[in-house]
């Protein structure tokens, strides 16, 4: 296959990743959200593999394997177990109505592409055009964290943001050194475990995972 075809596929997968980010923004159910998160991880892993194959950057294979292991298998499994234990199969409600959130998301995507243009011109990689998509998915995940009221969707938003950062790293510089990636992966894993413990404590204290109860913790 020629180089441009690889590029087409990588672009396609990145676009898929962005599409999933939009889907997460509009998804009301926790179970659906976790499934979407796993798909996003898979898209990321695939695009990383193709970049690794087409450019010969072998350490990116390890990154892709790490992504599959952590974000496609381990974390979704962990979250499914968690919501079963917490009995949190309920629907999630969003703060704003979905169309408004979508419109805000589109504005963010335009902003991100505008922002990424001068940077991607300086980058010397074949995948540089993906930088805008990566930044857009970071911002969309951030937006998702803001619009959610429950604790688990927020953590998923946080992890989806990490996906966007990872994509930015592969597209701009063919990935970070493996040591850094391993460190980040470990951090994410530990962070998710700690947040899982927090979920139990939050529910024990407030009888709910709804974060609006935490307002009572402020000073005055």
């Amino acid at each position: 296959m020629s180089q441009s075809l690889y590029l087409q596929v990588v672009n396609l997968l990145s676009a898929l990743l962005l599409l999933i980010a939009f889907a997460m923004l509009s998804q009301r159910r926790v179970v659906g959200l976790i499934t979407l998160f796993a798909w996003q991880g898979l898209a990321l892993a695939l695009s990383t593999t193709i970049v690794a194959y087409s450019t010969g950057q072998h350490h990116l294979y390890y990154s892709a394997a790490l992504t599959v292991g952590l974000k496609v298998i381990a974390m979704p499994w962990f979250f499914f177990r968690l919501i079963r234990q917490l009995d949190a199969h309920r629907e999630v409600e969003t703060l704003f109505n979905v169309p408004t959130t979508m419109l805000v998301g589109i504005v963010l995507v335009v902003f991100a592409f505008n922002l990424a243009q001068p940077i991607s011109q300086m980058s010397g990689t074949v995948t540089r055009s993906i930088l805008g998509i990566a930044m857009a998915s970071v911002l969309l995940s951030f937006l998702m964290m803001i619009t959610r009221t429950k604790a688990i969707p927020q953590v998923i938003g946080f992890l989806a943001m990490e996906n966007g950062l990872f994509l930015a790293a592969t597209s701009a510089t063919y990935g970070m050194p493996l040591v850094v990636e391993l460190g980040v992966a470990l951090d994410v894993l530990v962070g998710v475990l700690i947040l899982g413990i927090f979920f139990f404590h939050i529910r024990e204290t407030f009888d709910s995972l709804d974060l609006k109860h935490m307002e009572s913790l402020k000073e005055r």
Binding site: M145, K212, K218
Partner: peptide, 11 residues
């Protein structure tokens, strides 16, 4: 600035 609402802090 301190609302106690995590959404505001994120915003």
């Amino acid at each position: 600035l301190q609302h106690g609402r995590i959404h505001w802090y994120l915003i």
